[in-house]
Design a protein around this nucleic acid. Structure first.
Lengths: 243, 243
DNA sequence: CGTTCCCTTGACACCGATCAACTCTGGTGG
DNA sequence: CCACCAGAGTTGATCGGTGTCAAGGGAACG
């Protein structure tokens, strides 16, 4: 990964022993590669394995009857696609690779024994799903109550912090491998309007976006435009959030 | 409750033994009453107890700096407010009673021992939080990609099924103790527009809404308008969903 | 060197927001 | 029992943000 993206996330909450870390990492040896655009899991499927993103970006999305889609989460290295397979019957949504992705597969049986043997690991994994849920809540707010500027700004703030946590940000600059249509599908806007809004964010001197590199020029201003409060990400090591 | 609203929800997924049911119910003896409008938990708090709605409706919401609010979930009898207190540090949102509510309090310690002793109960509770998450995803879609008619129709379909599951629906008719402003806050609309949209739903012959009683006149038509697919609710006992 | 995405731009339509009354309802107290 | 009142629902007029449609430009890739 960033061999330790998963650990980076978990250690933000739990203090894991060295042997637990090793044990966890040892599970994710069965790896498969996906290319951009390939679907990792489809709605209605019942995967037999738990999937973990090792590298690359993927999106969790739902498709509507008339053909539009809504992305409900971006999955970054260290994120699980479906920790819940063992419990819920079927996937109620799909997952697609947005960039080339390395994905680890673990049988749910292995996960089960892992969690029944190691309480602190279980708790750490639990914590991960609860943060996912908190992020989801903030997306409901985003799509429901913010205008296009604030929506996109909020998304960028969130990605900035999540990527920073796993070591993908340097100097307020990071790789943003999303098309404007992807951003539109995440924020509930149209591609055209997303384009214009990004232009406004640039003209306001908040960001630059060249190639697929996003630079946050003024994080505090961006945060203000977004109405962004990072506490929902529940980052315990709060260094990042203090500026 | 509907003493068994919680059980109704859990039994939709797990086959619990009688003694497990009794054990579970025995926990929720410490009860407190809230009146409509009273807040049950506030953002930033760190509650020491797990809260379960026994009776009445509550809302999970976030407030924005400029004063508007977004409801991110409706809590019905049998729903937990904060199964996660033990793990996440602080509440990243607030919970308010929408009607008079009876709420049970359980110390997180008790919950902990319960879950470490009874695997099937743990799984059932887990399942509950996963369904919450699935509902959240569908709300993101709702606010992001549906127009006002479909949004409100979708919300009504969801409430219909959730209430049916816990026995609060008879004859496609149920108590809907929400103000139009509440519906607006859930769907990301304004009260005025919510009002007009409800009128359109009535004129289209899909629903009636008198007093606080909602009658679904044509569920299939409502479902079509909403683009509603109930599978995200993961109701195992699927009788309800087949019409 | 052409094809295919992706980004960009313009003109226009429309859904939903805003602002500002007015009405209705249910609950309260005199 | 009535008068009052606050909160909820309703209506109309107008504004603005976002969607839609259509076309052109640019960059990556075979």
């Amino acid at each position: 990964m960033a061999r330790n993206a998963l650990l980076a996330r978990l250690e933000a909450v739990a203090d894991l022993r060295e042997d637990e870390k090793q044990l966890l990492l040892s599970l994710f040896t069965n790896v498969r590669n996906f290319s951009a655009g390939q679907s990792i899991i489809r709605e209605g499927e019942r995967p037999e394995q738990v999937h973990l993103i090792l590298d690359g970006w993927a999106a969790r999305y739902k498709e509507l009857p008339e053909g539009s889609r809504q992305i409900v989460a971006f999955l970054l290295p260290g994120d699980f696609c479906d920790l819940h397979v063992a419990i819920l019957a079927n996937m109620d949504h799909s997952i697609v690779a947005l960039t080339a992705c390395r994905v680890a597969f673990v049988s749910s049986a292995k996960m089960d024994t892992l969690t029944s043997d190691h309480n602190s690991l279980t708790k750490a994994l639990w914590w991960g799903t609860l943060v996912d849920e908190a992020v989801l809540r903030s997306w409901v707010v985003n799509n429901g109550r913010r205008d296009s500027m604030a929506r996109i700004a909020h998304l960028l703030c969130e990605l900035h912090l999540r990527l920073e946590l796993i070591g993908f940000v340097s100097d307020d600059r990071f790789d943003l491998p999303l098309t404007q249509s992807d951003i539109a599908d995440a924020t509930g806007l149209t591609p055209v309007h997303t384009n214009r809004t990004l232009q406004r964010l640039r003209k306001a001197g908040l960001i630059t976006l060249r190639g697929k590199i996003l630079t946050v020029l003024d994080f505090n201003a961006l945060r203000t435009v977004a109405g962004f409060d990072p506490s929902y990400l529940h980052l315990k090591r709060q260094a990042l959030t203090e500026r």
